[in-house]
Design a protein around this nucleic acid. Structure first.
Lengths: 387, 387
DNA sequence: CTGTTAGCGCTTTCAC
DNA sequence: GTGAAAGCGCTAACAG
């Protein structure tokens, strides 16, 4: 391997000068620069970044942990994260926990061993709050609470659930079935929160807000409106075939169902099942996809969907990542830690919108952007204009 | 930062001993080991892998370049690649060129700068054969030819195209429309190959075989059978909305179309469009999804699909990656290079199967596994049992 | 079994 | 402007 000293020798300069040329830093006379450049060309020199990494103590790499790439929602999000990281001169080391069970531990390890500069955590954590407190390296959580010192970015699922509820109520439905993940993930177990009801949730905007939260809000609002609601559990969201099973259950296990709310892929399965049974959508059945991504477009027909602003979410995740890296490298730790506590409590920024492409359905929202942080709990919802 | 020497001092041993303990290598007395372990615990020591990387000259990281994660096919493939890399103690640095245009150059750069141990190239390359020849670092290509010294893994799209053709012919169709990418990618431009017709392709199993190849074979077989065939171009496969447009074109721009072959997501759009127009599938229209992944299951109805064996493809990609890494690190370069030339010419291993879940369609294949390398060009197809 | 020693290849003060 | 020198934190001969 040809190293910097070979170049230096060839160009008749010292290694430090070569380094200056490589990094385009400091002052080097044009003459010297040319000689060095020529030498590099001639020797076919390529710098070894591993040495640089060691010296600098960073790799410009961010670990990204997500449950699976199978779901278009996560695939899209990861794509956008990668995009924004790239803009910052960073790269993404990907881990889908569905494909790599030990991913969490492994990536946290790499973070601590300085192979990773930061971590974006989008999967359900196997570990308790204290575990995350101890890490003391840059981490940003997506759609979940890890601990007070770790900022969270995610959608405002409380508003999301409320949007669904209002849409369904406006549509005059009587019996709603929701399809979703295991109920025990409805809260962050490790935080010691018992299953909260929707009222409590609404009054605790500073608490965690995994996607599943929307279901609690939905149920609460439906109950208030006197609408029957049931729930079908999909045990493993990474096993797509279960969506088909769940869709079937929604039809078979309950009577007089006139509305189904489900994750996008499951919603597509619901449509398929409805057609098989000769049930017309939306005439006889309302279907709303939560986290609707492009799949809504390919579900056999376009369907109503609660969509998150994936691009913006990615942008913010990356922004926080950079901020955390900065904080841990530059900052005086004590003060910084304090400010993060503040931030973690207030920085729940969410984006939820409802799009409706089905003609004849009695509700229609324009896409809206909700910034949870910038408003009181319920106000903006009245602006949505439920027809 | 607490380093290995701090631990050594605390434990009253030398750094090398600590290193031995860390890596669980060599002989260390239990007593010493315990003392060292205790010291590590106490000091909260975490080894810095950057130093290790520098010394070892590797990062255990493989760059993976794919066009986009939006398509479930690539999302699945990336997931499986990650899985198999993990089994080898390696990790995947992901790059979807749709989200990061300069990805190819950047990743090749990282490969040369030793930030990456190897590269899996699944996107259309911006560079010529010579460019890849020069790299002289571990690279494996997915579904495309880069140069003679780089092994390729991919599906046998010649058989794939033939499968589609036979299925359609058996179904008695008269006018087929295929939806796909730009025709100029039908061959590897940089190799200087002119647009080949299917006959030529069949006789050149050693040539490149990007996915789109199946279309040439299909057209050729259809022409032979006297069946009309047209083609709708999707300019940018990363822009999903174009699939809807393309699906519409397939219906509007041609008359008497009774079969449509399309990438899975486009096929779903076709179904949607068909329903809108009151065209029954499969009674009035045959639809076959190429590269069918789970989306076929969620297209509103189950549809026939040519599926690749994603898991096996990933497994082989990773196997080749490890082999290339080995070759470039250990091997005597001259002999190795030669053997690779051999390998590159013969190692086109493909997996294509047709699954058909639509009742009433006059063809039905059992899932089959075709190993292109192990057979003559056409023989095994007769075993498929076209009903 | 354990310590000494010499780097891995590059970056960066700090003199000259 | 440029060079000398001191590492970044760990590994691996090689002695002992």
């Amino acid at each position: 391997m040809v190293g910097i000293r070979d170049v230096a020798k060839k160009a008749g300069v010292s290694t430090s000068t070569v380094s200056l040329v490589i990094n385009n830093s400091g002052y080097v006379s044009q003459n010297t620069r040319d000689r060095v450049t020529a030498a590099m060309k001639e020797l076919n020199y390529i710098p070894n970044d591993l040495a640089k990494n060691l010296y600098k103590g960073r790799t410009d790499t961010v670990g990204v942990i997500m449950p699976t790439l199978q779901h278009p929602f996560f695939a899209s999000l990861v794509g956008r994260i990668q995009h924004y990281l790239d803009l910052q001169g960073m790269r993404a080391l990907l881990c889908s926990t569905a494909d790599q069970e030990t991913g969490e531990k492994q990536y946290v390890d790499m973070l601590q061993r300085h192979t990773l500069d930061a971590l974006i955590m989008g999967s359900h954590s196997q570990n308790a709050q204290e575990y995350w407190e101890e890490i003391k390296r840059p981490v940003v959580a997506f759609d979940r609470y890890l601990c007070d010192s770790i900022p969270t970015v995610g959608a405002d699922h409380i508003s999301g659930g409320r949007l669904v509820a209002r849409a369904l109520i406006a549509a005059g439905v009587q019996h709603v079935v929701t399809i979703g993940g295991p109920r025990d993930r409805f809260h962050d177990r490790d935080r010691g929160i018992e299953l909260l009801n929707a009222r409590e949730l609404s009054s605790r905007p500073d608490s965690s807000f995994p996607t599943v939260r929307y279901q609690l809000v939905l149920e609460d609002e439906l109950a208030t409106a006197g609408i029957e609601a049931d729930y079908v559990i999909v045990e493993d969201l990474a096993d797509l075939s279960l969506f088909l099973t769940a869709a079937r259950s929604a039809f078979e296990d309950f009577d007089n169902v006139d509305a189904i709310v489900a994750p996008d892929l499951a919603a597509a399965a619901v449509l398929q099942e409805a057609e098989r049974r000769g049930i017309r959508v939306p005439e006889d059945l309302q279907v709303i996809a939560y986290d609707g991504t492009y799949v809504s477009l390919f579900a056999g027909k376009q369907i109503s969907a609660i969509t998150q602003n994936i691009d913006e979410t990615a942008r913010r995740l990356v922004a926080h990542v950079m901020q955390e890296i900065e904080r841990y490298s530059g900052g005086s730790s004590a003060v910084a830690a304090r400010s993060v506590l503040e931030k973690a409590s207030n920085d729940f920024q969410g984006y939820v919108s409802v799009t409706d492409n089905v003609e004849g359905v009695p509700y229609r929202f324009d896409a809206v952007k909700l910034e949870y942080i910038e408003r009181e709990t319920t106000t903006p919802l009245d602006d949505l204009g439920v027809e």
